[in-house]
C-alpha cells in the first residue's frame, strides 16, 4: 500500500502544481481529453501498451504531463512531437515516415504479396490452358482416384444439384 500512498502524494503534488495553470485556463482538461491524446502514444518503458490504458505509476505521471500540456494550450501534434523528442519514435503507434528508412515497412509487404499474386495468377493461367497429361503424374492420378471414391457421394450429390436447377 505504501507504493500507492507514494504515488498519490506525488499526484496530489502534481495536482497542486497544475492548479496554477488550471486557474489561468479556467478549467483542467478532463480525463477523456487526456486519454484521447494518450491513446495514440505508447508507453516508452512497457512494450506495446498505449498510454491511456497503461496502469504503471510512470504512465500516470505521463498522463498528468499530457494534462498539463493540454492546459497550456498545446495541440495534440505538439504533444506528440514533444514525446518523440524526449523518448524517441517508439512512443508512436507506427514507425513515422519522417525517417526514410521506415518506408520499407510499408513497401516490403505489398511487394511480397504482389509477387505472390503474380506467381499464383501465372500458375493458374498455365493450369487452365488444357495440355497433354504428362508422364509421371500417374501416381497422383491413382491417389486422386482413391480420394474420389470416398467423395463419390459428394460428387454425385453436386451433379444432382446441378440437374435440379
Amino acid at each position: 500500500m505504501k507504493k500507492f500512498l507514494y504515488t498519490f502524494t506525488f499526484i496530489i503534488l502534481l495536482g497542486i502544481l497544475f492548479t496554477g495553470a488550471a486557474l489561468a485556463q479556467d478549467k483542467l482538461p478532463t480525463d477523456d481529453e487526456v486519454n484521447k491524446v494518450a491513446h495514440n502514444l505508447y508507453c516508452p518503458v512497457c512494450q506495446n501498451t498505449p498510454l491511456d490504458v497503461c496502469p504503471t505509476d510512470a504512465c500516470k505521471d505521463w498522463r498528468e504531463q499530457i494534462r498539463g500540456m493540454l492546459a497550456e494550450g498545446k495541440t495534440e501534434a505538439q504533444i506528440q512531437q514533444y514525446f518523440v523528442d524526449q523518448f524517441g519514435d517508439r512512443v508512436l503507434a507506427a514507425p513515422p515516415l519522417s525517417t526514410k528508412f521506415n518506408l520499407i515497412i510499408y513497401i516490403i509487404p505489398p511487394l511480397i504479396i504482389l509477387a505472390g499474386a503474380i506467381i499464383l495468377f501465372r500458375s493458374l493461367k498455365e493450369w487452365t490452358t488444357p495440355k497433354a497429361v504428362e508422364a509421371g503424374s500417374g501416381a497422383a492420378r491413382d491417389a486422386s482416384e482413391a480420394s474420389s471414391q470416398k467423395d463419390s457421394y459428394v460428387t454425385r450429390f453436386e451433379e444432382e444439384l446441378k440437374k435440379q436447377k
Partner: peptide
C-alpha cells in the same frame, strides 16, 4: 529498425 538506424520503433495495432 534498431539494427540499421539504432532507433527503437513500435509497430502497434493501427
Amino acid at each position: 529498425s534498431e539494427l540499421f538506424t539504432g532507433q527503437k520503433v513500435t509497430v502497434g495495432p493501427p
